[in-house]
Amino acid sequence: MHDVDTAGHSDPEALVRRRLAERIGDEVAYGIGVDEPFLAVGVDSLDLMHVVAQLEQDADVKQVAEAELWAVASSIASLVAYISLESDGGGDGASVGAGEDAQPVRPGPGGHA
């Protein structure tokens, strides 16, 4: 994972998973692979809209490049890319994880924002 500071969040993937967990629970948010499509686990667009809106605040997104939700929120990786692009001045933001086999670390008690 590349090291991007996203408005004070040093690990954008952890931030994305945390915001997702707040909406749809830990098991899905920390169990889904970084590149696994949200559609493959039935995450609803409405939940993703909430997550994106929260992440935009977290990452201080000011300029929206895309108008379609799935363009920026199809997977953990695409969400990380979206908020990373905003904070790193337009870097590729694409290589954000080690692939679906990577096992994300579930936060301990009190690990949620």
Partner: peptide
């Protein structure tokens, strides 16, 4: 049976908006 496994099963059958948030 896990929540994630169940979601993968449902995603093949139902549109995402029909799948409960939890």
């Amino acid at each position: 049976v896990t929540e994630l496994g169940l979601r993968r099963h449902l995603a093949a059958l139902l549109s995402s908006y029909k799948i409960p948030r939890r």
